[in-house]
Design a protein around this nucleic acid. Structure first.
Lengths: 246, 246
DNA sequence: GTAATAGTGTCTATGAGACAATATCGT
DNA sequence: ACGATATTGTCTCATAGACACTATTAC
């Protein structure tokens, strides 16, 4: 129990140790190898925690320049990928005594989906290494810094979960896409095939996509091109894809 | 762009202003008046922000005593209600320059569901006023401190949303309950009636509840008592309650 | 024509919604 | 018997799943 009297000056009352505050971003894209996540390599400097280890992109909140948490996340996303307005959602926050050797720290985590076309990395600027890691293989072995493996797993399970009843995979595609391409994004994230017919009726009977002028040409029957009806807000379906198994 | 050289000492590198860090808890219960939320009155001290205003219970992280964010939330919950292990879920975090007049601040918000039996308030200790507010009426007028109205609205919409496909309302009941009582909790949160028959088949065909020895007696046919099959994790249903309207 | 992918149709199963019928208690 | 609430049943409808069929391009 603290709080001795009410007569303390404001300055005194605010003068206690504060946790470190960071923002991290889990950035997903779908490449040839499936679902990938962006990681950055920490500096080799032995004075830094986890030198040379791989971590989620992120860093301290800059209270001079960051208006709020989300714009801080957007800034970090832009620094690494150059992408401006992807799908961005708050994942949650992690905080405690032990997660950072530098002291009590709390991180606010966002997760982002970007199309493969935008998955070109912006190295160089701060000489850090930046790379895409397939979510299933190397990541577990990568021994992520801090509690970032736990955070990444939470992000993956959130994504896998929401795929079942939302239009999130659409944000992994460029502006114009065919229904087959959209279905493919779902299948990559879900890691299981889905029925073409059921998929099409679900997507078309919602207001998710709007057909546009133009077809995807190929060595076979051309496919109708679509775009998101309202790119700003994802669609929620009233049922999940997989029925409950007994 | 900062970062002059890598030769800085660790102490120097960590020596920058840090945001204030708080944890707030949105505590819901269902009383006669429907869904209620717990608010506390801020001290009248004019040196404090929003003197006399109503706010969500919460406060600064105590890095000496709080192991992590969730235990900090549990501590604050316990201080106000005496409840130990309710349903507790992270809602999200809010942070930015403007939300607290004392400076750049970030709050980690949890939301909790507690049964009405535990809704007895623990006033006194710090002389603050603590009270339940019905979610629909007084809250909007109450002019909550900080951005707490926005946070509360996010909590309400999260709760209303999850009620459609989860077993969360079960946590608003005591250990033993009847199916009608459970249905009533759903209806209070959803603010609409649900079909008895559909409700019962949904609940019974999931593994949500287990019948126990004993009946709820009354001036009519007694009702079977149930308990949660696994109180530690809520059940997710494969469909929402309301079908999509056309 | 063939290969390949796009797009449609048909049939079944599951579970929600509406509503009715029956069951079991206190009085 | 009556009032009240518990519990079950029946019928309809929407949509997922399985699977087959047709359509349209390049070659």
């Amino acid at each position: 129990m603290k709080k001795p009297a009410k007569q303390l000056l404001k300055k005194d009352r605010m003068d206690f140790p504060r946790p470190l505050t960071t923002v991290d971003v889990v950035i997903f894209t779908v490449l040839e190898s499936g679902l990938n996540v962006l990681l950055v390599q920490r500096p080799e400097d032995p004075n830094e925690p986890y030198p040379g280890g791989w971590a989620l992109p992120g860093g301290f909140v800059d209270i001079e320049n960051d208006q709020d948490l989300e714009s801080c996340a957007r800034r970090k996303l832009k620094e690494k990928t150059g992408v401006d307005t992807p799908y961005l959602e708050q994942l949650g926050s992690w905080g405690g005594t032990t997660r950072d050797p530098r002291g009590w720290s709390a991180t606010h985590v966002y997760f982002a989906l970007i199309p493969a076309q935008d998955a070109v990395l912006q190295k160089g600027a701060n000489a850090q290494d930046v790379a895409w890691f397939p979510v299933n293989q190397s990541v577990a072995k990568a021994k992520l810094a801090f509690d970032h493996l736990e955070i990444l797993q939470a992000a993956i399970s959130r994504l896998r979960n929401k795929v079942e009843y939302t239009s999130l995979p659409a944000y992994l595609l460029p502006e114009k896409f065919t229904l087959s391409e959209l279905q493919h994004m779902y299948e990559v994230v879900m890691e299981r095939p889905i029925e073409k017919s059921a998929f099409r009726t679900r997507v078309l009977s919602s207001n998710l996509v709007t057909p546009i002028q133009g077809m995807r040409e190929g060595p076979n029957r051309p496919a109708q091109l679509y775009r998101l009806t309202d790119p700003n807000r994802p669609v929620f379906f009233p049922r999940t894809f997989k029925q409950k198994q007994k």
